[in-house]
Simulated assay, not measured.
Amino acid sequence: MFDLKHYLAEKRRSINTALDQWCGETDSPSRIVQAMRYSLTAGGKRLRPILCLAAAEAVGGDPDAALVPACALEMIHTYSLIHDDLPAMDDDDLRRGRPTSHIQFDEATALLAGDALLTMAFEILAKEGDPAGGDPARRMRIIHEIAAAAGYQGMIEGQMRDMAAEGAALDAASLAEMHSLKTGALIRASVAAGAISGGADPARIEDLTQYAGRIGLAFQVADDILNVEGDPGVMGKAAGTDRDRKKSTYPALLGLEGSRRFSLRLVEEALHAIAGFDGGADPLRAIARYIIERKR
């Protein structure tokens, strides 16, 4: 029987070791390096980089070949969290059980730390290792997938829509589209980058993209539920903030039980998308279930 807990712990160790090596000296006198390390090494699920490694395995590739894009994705994700927490956006004081970057340092340093992590992600993608197996076109495709997902037609557009929708009641289609950009785009890129690193053919990549789209939305539904009934001590961040900011959420639209049913359906659809894969995709199958069962 597949042991997801062991798998996640093993992959987190590998990812954390690589991130630690790339993100400057632990005792660096540089304030910006200290701020980058503060957020990047604060823990977290490492879901996006793990999905990248698992997708490489699912197509029969070497997960080590996907470690560079995996770590770049975590840098981008962390930058987005630093910026999301700023007073100009969500104005949060707590992230991953610690004061947010702008509380620990200051707003200007937090902004620059986020900018630095974003640019470092593309620095390592262009320089470190060879996730493309010596194929420049494949390497460029990985970079393009990640850049597009993080940019103005992906994650940033989703964040803009989320901010603009505060106080409004989005319908189901608009809510799904917003979250497919804000949360889903980087999750889809994580799976696609891993599959490309593993040498997948177009049909396999398409199946995995379908899988990623479903789990990306399921992840957001689970986040919305946790914001209502999660334990702040476990989550490492405050609960009830969506209600306070009058955000459009799935519990507000469907109710808690309706949201749970919807998340289960999304996971079933994700598993159906990779039903033709062999046991190499078992980590992806287990992660799909974990996404809606997690407590943080």
Score class of each variant (00 low, 15 high):
139 R>M: 15
161 R>I: 05
156 I>K: 06
144 H>E: 04
119 T>V: 13
147 A>T: 02
130 D>C: 05
161 R>N: 07
117 L>V: 15
187 I>L: 15
158 G>F: 07
111 L>M: 10
109 T>W: 08
109 T>P: 10
125 L>T: 15
181 L>V: 01
130 D>M: 12
184 G>K: 07
130 D>G: 08
178 M>T: 13
187 I>E: 06
133 G>F: 01
134 G>T: 01
178 M>R: 10
188 R>A: 09
140 M>F: 13
141 R>D: 04
178 M>D: 13
114 G>M: 03
168 A>M: 13
142 I>F: 03
135 D>M: 13
121 A>T: 14
173 A>C: 02
154 G>T: 03
117 L>N: 12
163 M>I: 14
189 A>M: 06
152 Y>I: 14
118 L>W: 12
127 K>V: 02
159 Q>C: 04
192 A>P: 09
119 T>G: 08
140 M>T: 02
164 A>F: 11
137 A>I: 07
188 R>L: 01
175 L>M: 12
136 P>G: 03
183 T>C: 11
151 G>V: 00
112 L>K: 15
181 L>W: 14
129 G>T: 10
132 A>Q: 00
170 L>F: 08
110 A>H: 01
170 L>C: 15
182 K>R: 14
186 L>A: 11
142 I>S: 09
190 S>K: 06
163 M>W: 04
114 G>R: 10
180 S>A: 09
117 L>K: 13
122 F>Y: 09
119 T>F: 03
147 A>E: 12
163 M>G: 04
117 L>M: 14
136 P>H: 00
177 E>F: 08
137 A>R: 03
190 S>N: 05
126 A>C: 08
191 V>R: 07
142 I>E: 03
126 A>F: 14
158 G>H: 11
152 Y>G: 14
130 D>V: 12
178 M>H: 15
138 R>M: 08
132 A>T: 00
162 D>M: 11
188 R>T: 02
128 E>G: 09
110 A>Q: 03
119 T>L: 11
141 R>F: 13
144 H>F: 04
